[in-house]
């Protein structure tokens, strides 16, 4: 077929898969670091403010935030190429998942759904933070007191997507059997979610919402 012969690129599928892997790992690393930074509020307000000012003073926020936005958009397009676009294909996958009673197939289906949701919710989150600049404990506390329900949803779907995403990349590329990878990914995810929830409670208290 002419159109396929003329567009054949030997390595494009490999490069796409590597970009999916690299952008995914970067985003998981970012998200986990982000949650650790946020949970410094559990130690003290000063700690949180010092960290935020440090990132601000050395322009790390101004480099890091646009960089992560670009990586996230790349990840959305490139990892999203796996998502079937035709309605019949989507119905096939849905019916297949329901038929198979298979855990990893279901987690992938929700991976695509949470991915779409994160695109929307993370955009709102970035907007909220940037319009309320700079980041400090009181600003965050006010935001959290007002939008705790929004952040509750974002925390869970974000960590879900990151946890199963990194699990799947290790399964696809790694040399380890799936079970231990799954345990480690789940353990880290639970720790991060608990830290996130604790930080949320601290912020909401600080903001006088509870």
């Amino acid at each position: 077929m002419l159109q396929k012969v003329l567009t054949k690129s030997n390595k494009s599928d490999l490069y796409l898969d590597l970009i999916e892997l690299a952008s995914g790992l970067l985003l998981v690393g970012f998200l986990w670091a982000h949650m650790l930074f946020v949970s410094t509020i559990l130690i003290s307000q000063e700690m949180f403010n010092t960290l935020s000012e440090f990132l601000d003073t050395y322009y790390l926020s101004y480099v890091g935030i646009p960089f992560i936005i670009v990586v996230a958009l790349f990840h959305f397009v490139i990892a999203g190429r796996r998502i079937p676009t035709r309605i019949q294909e989507q119905r096939i996958v849905w019916q297949h998942a329901k038929m198979l009673h298979h855990f990893d197939t279901w987690t992938w289906v929700f991976q695509t759904i949470t991915g779409m949701a994160i695109l929307m919710l993370a955009a709102i989150h970035v907007w909220l933070v940037l319009t309320g600049w700079p980041i400090n404990a009181m600003n965050s506390a006010d935001r959290m007191a007002a939008f705790w329900w929004f952040y509750l949803v974002l925390l869970f779907i974000g960590e879900y997507h990151a946890g199963f995403g990194i699990y799947r990349q290790f399964v696809k590329w790694g040399m380890f059997p799936r079970k231990p990878i799954g345990y480690v990914a789940k353990l880290i995810t639970v720790i991060i979610v608990v830290l996130g929830l604790a930080a949320m409670v601290a912020f909401v208290r600080l903001g006088g919402g509870a």
Binding site: L16, L100, D104, R168, K172, W173
Partner: peptide, 27 residues
Amino acid sequence: FGCMGLMACDDNCPMELPLQMQLAYVR
């Protein structure tokens, strides 16, 4: 590179072939 890593092959192989490892090896 078409494999999405859902591993239904690995879980449903009646001969219990180590498909996860084989797929990752080739990748």
